[in-house]
């Protein structure tokens, strides 16, 4: 890989109280890469995504997106913690889809998707609605524009969640266990949308997932995390069929057998 990474993480540490969730965590993610993060619960996968989305503040370490600091910035030749304005500017690069959808219950599907483009990106109402409609059609919900979230199934809600995040056109999209809260029969429709995104966009996608087969199928690389560190980062073929570490093998055996 000769291109500069789009996301570069060095020495990232995060503690909750005395519990160390991320320990000296390093990672480089290439532009357009589809990278899945797997690992046991509590290994720090979601926390890493939440720090990238600026929902959690790291205790130490640096993250750079396209060479610019996420949680730090330059001021007068010195590196200082990011202020609100800097965080707002950096956030335009990143988007997130949540495990529990976090849709706005008082808005229709279309309003959920079109609100931020209108308010934050300054699109006109027509432009925002058009973008919203296009995206909802793309995720197969063209007939649900006026439905409120509680009139939708879990799978449909999550597809609105994906459309909502896409509407902001981030370069890096974070998917935080987006099928974990779904009934088993609804997982497929969401994975279908993700698969299409993975194949047809050059958006960088970072997926925390427990869907091993899916991760194997769509990822360029897969990271295995345990106890706050990346233990192994390799192609899906190597991770799933020929992992280097016993710990990786052990985890995969446990999850793939069930």
């Amino acid at each position: 890989m000769s291109t500069a990474p789009i996301v570069s993480v060095r020495g990232l540490c995060k503690r909750f109280g005395t519990h160390e969730v991320l320990k000296e965590f390093d990672m480089d993610i290439n532009p357009g890469e589809k990278l899945s993060i797997i690992g046991p619960s509590g290994s720090g996968k979601s926390t890493f995504l939440r720090i990238l989305m600026t929902l959690e503040k790291p205790n130490a370490g640096t993250i750079e997106i396209e060479g610019k600091g996420l949680w730090h910035m330059e001021r007068g030749g010195k590196t200082v913690p990011a202020d609100k304005k800097h965080l707002r500017a950096m956030r335009t690069q990143v988007g997130m889809v949540f495990q529990h959808f976090n849709l706005f219950p008082h808005m229709t599907a279309l309003q959920n998707v079109a609100m931020a483009p209108k308010q934050v990106l300054g699109l006109t109402r027509d432009e925002a609605n058009e973008r919203g409609q296009d995206l909802l059609e793309r995720v197969g919900l063209g007939d649900k524009l006026d439905a409120h979230p509680n009139q939708l199934s879990g799978g449909q809600k999550q597809r609105v969640g994906i459309a909502r995040a896409l509407a902001m056109q981030p370069k890096v999209m974070l998917f935080d266990e987006v099928t974990s809260a779904l009934d088993p029969e609804l997982v497929g429709e969401v994975l279908g949308v993700l698969r299409e995104l993975a194949h047809e966009t050059d958006m960088t996608m970072l997926l925390v997932t427990h869907e091993m087969r899916f991760a194997q199928e769509i990822s360029d690389r897969v990271a295995f995390m345990d106890h706050g560190q990346v233990l192994e980062l390799d192609t899906p073929a190597n991770i799933f069929t020929n992992p280097t570490l016993a710990r990786t093998r052990e985890f995969l055996n446990a999850v793939l057998e069930s």
């Binding site: 929902l55 335009t92 949540f98 976090n102 849709l103 934050v120």
Partner: peptide
């Protein structure tokens, strides 16, 4: 109101005022 609502607002880059007003 569920904390997920304000997290969604952050992810969509809403200002605190927009978050209050619209969500």
């Amino acid at each position: 109101i569920d904390k997920g609502q304000s997290e969604a607002c952050t992810a969509l880059n809403l200002t605190p005022f927009q978050q209050f007003r619209f969500v």
